[in-house]
Design a protein around this nucleic acid. Structure first.
Lengths: 348, 348
DNA sequence: CTGTTAGCGCCTTCAG
DNA sequence: CTGAAGGCGCTAACAG
């Protein structure tokens, strides 16, 4: 009456997928499927003899586990979605690199998602991606849709928010204090004696972290009683070209400017390269400061003064937090200030 | 005798995962689960009335499909693993960007993998990643383990190999002819009248595509009867710093050099920036050519002559090939030469 | 340490 | 156009 379980004839009805399954391995090794499963996932729970026989069977049959089936049965896959605002911004790439390297070494795969600075898209992406029952999630920033936050909190698995620092994180958090970073460069410029200082950025409508840096800058100047702090902005992504344009526009609009604080090194580099081309002296004619610590900065003439943030390390740290939680260790510090460093060179 | 299927009591035995399932939605809408499935995946096969009721139930319950279960049942997930040699090389990042943008717009997710230029690691990665029953795969280069090739061919789903061009691809292929690219710059330098020309690269032990460009370069020079063509190399990844070092070493070893052909723009930019610093004239004292078409090149002084390859577009094209095949359309051209362009500027 | 049993949640197949 | 039945391949739970 019952279907002949031992026989092969009833199998493979759905599709002609002739992949080797755990059952094939089990048969070959003369054990139960579950034993193969254990030999593969928790070898220490299987006797050496069986383990050997099973390994051999796996080898000869060329068995490759179906992670989807495993994921369904155990309600989780070794996948970690990483959602960033953009893949065209080097910063995020470097963070992703750190994440990917660390997670892959631990046997996890990174599922890449890009929200394009749009919280709706972020929410939709997360919805979709959570459908893969990932082990955890890494996402950018502390600002999300209310529904995203709620869902993730209810989800109960590790979540790391990166790039900025705050006390209202969903779960774990690693990043920098952007306002502090902005203030840091502003203070440096003040110390150098500059008073006519502009902050130049782009795409700041979308990128609130850049806005936070600007806020920090503005407040630092205000505290020092320095009046004019202007802000040029466009809605394009940062690039050398936009930096060049901002540089020229600022020079024209404010010929008396003494220093320019750029929202990032890409812009600042564009400015220095343009100054080079025009034979302008930096910092004598105009001082230039950046943010990020791109390697390009130290190859420019003059070398770029910048606030360096360890981006790769930030990714590594985020991944480590996640892995710690996955191993059951709840990290003592669910919040890591990755820090920053004022790198004073010759451009200021 | 039989388990009460309609009741809820027997459910959720494995884990306390209280996620909303398709069954919950079905109950709420007063239909069978399969109808919900159809309403979601093939709405045209469900009457408008039911569809509406189901959509409503989905909405009120906050149902999010379990892609893992769907993947198991239908033997495929909307995931596309992308395997590149390194995430620290800008080229691959830009290609990934193109891939990701195109695939995400079509409802697929990119699973990121990095092989570190190691075919063993590539094979292992693919094994693992194929366990997710992906819809297709994108990998770098045409050289792989024999077993990788065999397995992928037997797999029967779309595979795209990117970055280089050849007739022995597993399935589909989009890239450039590296030897041609190398020859292109070499010919340009010859045309400009340079005869003492060096090719400078790094990490070429691992990166055979750079070696192919060198080969093209060498043969072009040989064909023109130009004798000395030397090659400096180190085993570090490309960077401005390494470019600077190669530049200085080459100047010292061969003070009579007229032109330097760098394996990529990162190196070439490092060289130009160092020349700037030393007040050397480019191209009068030394001509410099690159490869890639990084935007930095056009902001240098002098602007960098380079061979531009549309990297983002290459990613887009690879993704499009894959999507076409997934939609059942077998592309007329399973092989796309993405081409390149000699961008002549002032550095040569 | 090993096996049995019963699903994980969805979709394919086959009927109506 | 809608539904019933069963299985995708694996592992959790519970014995022995």
């Amino acid at each position: 009456m019952a279907i002949d379980k031992a026989g092969v004839r009833e199998r493979r009805r759905h599709r002609g997928d002739n992949r080797v399954t755990i059952e094939d391995v089990a048969k070959q090794a003369g054990v139960a499927p579950i034993t193969v499963s254990r030999a593969l996932n928790t070898p220490e729970k299987v006797s050496a003899r069986l383990r050997e026989r099973i390994d051999q069977a796996v080898e000869t049959l060329g068995y490759v586990p179906n992670l989807i089936a495993g994921g369904l049965a155990s309600a989780g896959t070794r996948v970690i979605p990483v959602v960033v605002p953009s893949l065209s911004i080097l910063t995020f790439i470097e963070v992703i690199h750190g994440i990917q390297q660390t997670l892959e070494a631990a046997g996890y795969q990174v599922l890449l998602g890009s929200s394009d600075f749009d919280l709706d898209r972020e929410a939709a992406l997360l919805d979709s991606v959570l459908g893969y029952s990932p082990s955890g999630v890494i996402l950018t920033g502390l600002r999300h849709h209310e529904s995203t936050v709620r869902r993730l909190k209810a989800w109960g698995r590790p979540v790391v928010e990166i790039m900025e620092l705050g006390d209202a994180s969903i779960d774990m958090n690693v990043g920098v204090d952007n306002a502090e970073v902005g203030a840091c460069m502003a203070l440096h410029l003040l110390e150098r004696g500059y008073r006519r200082i502009a902050f130049l950025g782009t795409g700041m409508v979308r990128d609130y972290r850049a806005r936070e840096r600007y806020e920090g800058h503005r407040e630092a100047l205000a505290a020092a009683g320095v009046e004019s702090e202007l802000l040029f902005q466009q809605d394009e992504p940062s690039s050398y070209e936009v930096g060049r344009q901002l540089f020229l526009e600022a020079l024209e609009a404010r010929p008396d400017l003494e220093a320019m604080h750029f929202a990032n090194d890409n812009l600042a580099a564009g400015a220095i390269l343009e100054a080079n081309r025009r034979g302008m002296r930096v910092p004598e004619d105009i001082a230039i400061g950046g943010y990020l610590g791109l390697s390009l900065g130290e190859h420019l003439t003059p070398r770029l003064t910048t606030v360096t943030v360890p981006r790769f390390e930030m990714g590594v740290e985020a991944a480590k937090l996640l892995l710690a939680r996955l191993k059951g260790r709840s990290p003592a510090l669910p919040r890591v200030d990755i820090g920053y460093e004022l790198t004073v060179r010759e451009s200021t």
